[in-house]
Write a protein that binds this DNA or RNA. Structure first.
Lengths: 151, 151
DNA sequence: ATAAATAATTGAATATTATACAATTTATGG
DNA sequence: CCATAAATTGTATAATATTCAATTATTTAT
């Protein structure tokens, strides 16, 4: 056993996918060269960042999902991007938004279970310099990345 | 002008992408048939739902992003899934989670601008039967779908 | 512990698809 | 209205996915 599956999942989080030009051409009833040209243009313009997979996280053993609302320590207030750049490297963090309102940061986290989440919290408070965090645990993921996820 | 670009963007939200088997095979130093077999297995098991694009939403004219926390009217309390199934069809809604805690629903919304968001709010309160909503506007999207988005 | 059954890996052959290129058409700015 | 750039398209080619049969590894039952 080589456990290729988990390697694939990691690759598909970062990309390693590509558009199906022929299929799109059939669907839109346009020549595949036209589709090809337009896709390359979208990529060139930076409108499309990459292509990746959409997972059923429960099935791949990452069923524990939490929204984390974090506040920074006052001394870090002036430059949130310094911290978010660091958080962005965290493999458990699916998304990061710098927001207006009560909490400066909104993170979406995916871990295997509560235990792993708890470990993350302990580590992060220290590592990222949060003054306070509030969390909201997902009981059921209905839609993700514009796709309905049937659990 | 046929405006193929916007059609492509819509298709890539739902899928119309596919893994790059040859590239993955080179990367992992495994035969492409082995990679192919393992990917098909992941798909068969439902672990991979589909493949799609990751966008720079600002560049495609959907730069306004809001997290919406909604509460249901008490009479809808017992069956949130009835409403979320309906919300899932909403093209402005990127993700839906049924959560524990103060708010039953967490939505991630993407609209062109504040105006479009305001129209959505007015429509949704009525249409989806929210008793109350709180929102958090994203000022900067740092990471999305496990990918760093450089604005 | 061993045989039988099932699952995973692999290479060779084929079918399908993406890409490069040149030509044509369409849009744009002075 | 002309000149220039951008977009569309068909043909040819290169690259890729997929099928299939065979081999190897793993699991299950006795």
């Amino acid at each position: 056993m080589k456990d290729i599956a988990s390697k694939l999942i990691n690759l598909f989080k970062q990309g390693y996918c590509t558009p199906q030009i022929a299929r799109i051409a059939r669907k839109l009833k346009e020549p595949s060269t036209t589709i090809h040209y337009n896709i390359k243009k979208l990529e060139r313009e930076g409108k499309i960042v990459t292509y990746g997979a959409i997972f059923d996280y429960k099935k791949i053993g990452y069923g524990y999902c939490v929204y984390v609302f974090a506040n920074l320590k006052p001394e870090k207030y002036d430059n949130p991007e310094e911290i978010t750049a660091k958080i962005a490297k965290d493999p458990y963090v699916e998304s990061i938004d710098i927001c207006s309102g009560e909490h400066e940061l909104v993170l979406k986290l995916r871990t295997r279970d509560v235990d792993e989440y708890y470990e993350w919290v302990k580590k992060s408070i220290k590592l990222y310099g949060f003054s306070k965090i509030i969390s909201l645990t997902s009981l059921k993921q209905v839609k993700d990345g514009f796709v309905e996820v049937g659990n």
